[in-house]
Simulated scan of single mutants.
Amino acid sequence: MRRLLPVLLFAALPVWAQKGDLQPLPAVPPPPPEMEAFDAALEPQVTIVKKEAETREEYRIKGKLYMVKVTPSIGKPYYLIDRQGDGKFVEADIAQNPVRPPMWVIYSW
C-alpha cells in the first residue's frame, strides 16, 4: 500500500500541471466541394446464392468478381480470392492470415 501511493501521485502529475487558460480547438473546416463523401461505385456489390449444400456470397466491384465466401451447410466457411485480377481464384484462410498487403502492378510488358 505504501508503494501504491507514490505511483498514484506520479500518475496524477499531468493533471495538476495543466494551466487554467486552455483554449478550445478551432472548428473543423468542411471538405472541399469537389470531394465526394460517398462513392457508390466503390462499394462492393454482394450477391447471395443459397443452395442445399452451401451458401455463396459473391463480392463484386464495378461488376468484376473478386471474392467468394462459401459457407457449407456442414463445416467452416472459406474464401476464394482473385489476388491477381486474372479470374483465377485461390483459397485464402482469412482466420489465420487476416493481413493482406496491397499489391500493385508497377510495370508490365
Rank of each mutant, 00 (worst) to 15 (best):
L8I: 10
L9G: 11
L9C: 12
L9I: 05
F10K: 00
F10P: 00
A11K: 00
A11V: 10
A12P: 00
L13T: 00
L13D: 00
V15L: 07
W16C: 00
A17P: 09
A17K: 02
Q18T: 08
K19G: 15
G20Y: 15
G20H: 11
L22I: 09
L22S: 13
Q23R: 14
Q23P: 02
P24T: 01
L25V: 11
L25Q: 13
L25N: 11
P26T: 03
P26M: 08
P26C: 06
A27C: 03
A27S: 09
V28A: 12
P29L: 12
P29A: 13
P30G: 05
P30T: 02
P30Q: 01
P31L: 11
P31R: 06
P33A: 13
P33C: 08
E34A: 14
E34S: 13
E34D: 15
E34G: 12
M35D: 10
M35T: 12
M35N: 08
E36S: 10
E36P: 01
A37Y: 10
F38Y: 15
F38G: 02
F38P: 03
D39A: 09
D39N: 15
A40V: 10
A41R: 12
A41T: 14
P44Q: 03
T47Y: 10
V49Q: 06
V49M: 04
K50A: 08
K50T: 14
K50P: 09
E52H: 07
E52F: 11
A53Q: 13
E54T: 07
T55N: 07
T55K: 14
E58S: 07
Y59Q: 02
Y59A: 02
R60P: 08
I61R: 15
I61E: 06
I61P: 01
K62P: 01
K62H: 14
L65M: 06
M67H: 10
M67V: 04
M67N: 05
M67Y: 08
V68W: 04
K69A: 02
V70M: 03
T71M: 07
T71K: 04
P72V: 05
S73E: 05
S73A: 14
S73M: 09
S73W: 09
I74L: 07
I74R: 10
G75L: 04
G75S: 03
P77W: 04
Y79C: 00
Y79V: 02
Y79I: 01
Y79M: 02
Y79F: 12
L80K: 01
I81R: 08
D82K: 01
D82V: 01
Q84F: 11
G85W: 07
G85C: 03
D86E: 09
V90A: 11
V90S: 10
V90C: 01
E91C: 01
A92C: 04
A92W: 14
